[in-house]
Design a protein around this nucleic acid. Sequence first.
DNA 1: CGTTGAACCTGTTTGC
DNA 2: TGCAAACAGGTTCAAC
Length: 283
Amino acid sequence: MPELPEVETLVCGLRPHITGRTILSVRLGKTDFMDNPAEIERDLPGCKMVSITRHGKFFSIALETPESPPQRLFVHLGMTGHLATFAPSEPEEKHTHLVASLDDGRELRYTDPRRFGRIALFSPTEFQKVLASNGAEPLDISSVEFQRVLGARHARIKALLLDQHVFGGIGNIYADESLWRARIHPARIAARIHPSRLEELRRTLQRLLREAILLRGSSISDYRDADGQPGRFQLRHRVYDREGKPCFRCRVAIRRTTVAGRSSYFCPRCQPSPSSRRSRRQR
DNA sequence: CGTTGAACCTGTTTGC
DNA sequence: TGCAAACAGGTTCAAC
């Protein structure tokens, strides 16, 4: 589930525990979600973790060794991925697929029950390619840029919000929550949304993401931060997973539909559907 | 350019 | 209780 706020929370929590640490040895479990497990096993030992950075929904750890060229460990958590440090004495969780022993005596462990995540060791060039295919950072995108990437698109607004080539970091929860707050139906065609409403969407989205980061993300079932704590933003959800419950603004029952292949929650009164807007205009 | 549905995997919840 | 279906924060690919 991890979307931008959850990944940001995890990365900030991880940073003090891993920067400056050197990896002594690596043990792998299932590797079908890794691009190059053999290289990871061979090259990671001896590497010093210099920095950790979030990029949309994924993050990367910059690695250095005295002899070989710098590399980057790419990590995408998928739906159920998690990375944290533990004392070696702590029992290993089920579905632990990577364990790295560190020079401070602790272990960095990656767990992922569904294995929808992705781990890869990239050269700077390869990593640049991955970065380039990722869309704009929604947290600080400008009004002009937001308009440029959405204004001419004839796709549904929710499909575009979820498209990681357009924005990096928005997932199903924050897409629905931002659309409810901006009163836009998820199936509206982006190019037909008035620029002033798109601007409202941008502002509300940025406010939402910042607030979610302050509350350390949304924990639906298994998301936890680097210290094992759940987030609290799920308490602020207004539509996500609220089918049949009253809208926080108008009390009308929240509906669920499928847009872009994903469950989409919306208020039928506050977020009028494209077809009902069309018939209203004809009258 | 777009959309849809299936696939990848495990676990939990819901309904009969 | 038991079992099957539906569903889950994600991405990718083929087919239309």
